[in-house]
Design a protein around this nucleic acid. Structure first.
Lengths: 148, 148
DNA sequence: AGGATGCATAAGGTAGTCTTTATGAAACAA
DNA sequence: TTGTTTCATAAAGACTACCTTATGCATCCT
């Protein structure tokens, strides 16, 4: 019987920012899974670089709120920031974004359409996998080329 | 001063399942932004089709918990389910997934890296890069081809 | 120096996610 | 029919994401 794990409610780190490990795809998607943050990303995709307060003003959000979301986006390596005097400029980390999407692509590339290969019987597969429960080694799939 | 909107806490629909509009990229990413759900997706990517209880057993999660996450994945059009007698088989909706990722790719394709090469095929008229700061005219970008 | 600007952080509250236990409902088997 | 299997749903609780207001802390300007 499965042990179900103690009680790892969601995941730790409420807002303590450790750079978010490379393999944390869920954390990456979680960061993108918020309308406000997605609008920030959308804006940064248009202008390449922008001041924090400019984005906040444009999107009509308060400054602490902007700072909050920017913090999460930074932790997920979706945006990078750079101080410029008393201002802070932020831009998309397109390289990291592409890398994560490539990871996701690799995850999806399991056995989507196995042609006509009759796989295991419906009687479940006890130790079928030799598997890589997560963060699989390497499968060399086609990269997405999502960014221009 | 910006009005900041009343108080739309997060977004409506706690778990009432309406198929989640096509344009809701944030909802899509939010569905992927959970370790348990991502493991379900990973598993379904490997086997193409699987019984609900089999996936739950394999991942070591309780049956109601599996049902909960499956509900969200279904709402986000990430998996589809099909009754087979008293069992329920689920599989990835790879088409929908690709479509969402294409949307995201398009969102990213704003004006990030002007790309020094500027390879314009002869016969194509430029006059295209008039930097539209907001809600730009969605230019067609290359689709990701993330799934095999 | 004093003040203004730009951003980060603290404190507090509300509402939502995610979990387990318990129950309901439908398809099979006897 | 009764019982078993398979999944969905309800109820309740723990915990956190997210927002606003208020404050702190540099950095510029005069």
């Amino acid at each position: 019987m499965p042990v179900e794990q103690p009680r790892p409610h969601r995941h730790v780190l409420p807002l303590a920012l450790s750079p978010l490990p490379e393999a944390d795809l869920a954390g990456y998607f979680e960061s993108l899974g918020n309308p406000t943050r997605l609008r920030i990303v959308e804006r940064l995709a248009q202008v390449k670089e922008a001041r924090v307060s400019d984005v906040a003003l444009l999107l009509g959000i308060s400054q602490p709120r902007m700072s909050w979301h920017l913090r999460l986006l930074r932790r997920a390596r979706i945006v990078t920031t750079k101080r410029e005097g008393r201002e802070v400029l932020c831009r998309l980390d397109r390289e990291s974004i592409a890398a994560r999407l490539a990871n996701f692509s690799q995850l999806l590339g399991g056995a989507g359409e196995p042609s006509q290969e009759s796989n295991q019987k419906p009687g479940v597969d006890p130790a079928e996998s030799s598997s890589k429960p997560l963060s699989g080694p390497r499968r060399e799939r086609s990269l997405p080329e999502v960014i221009s």
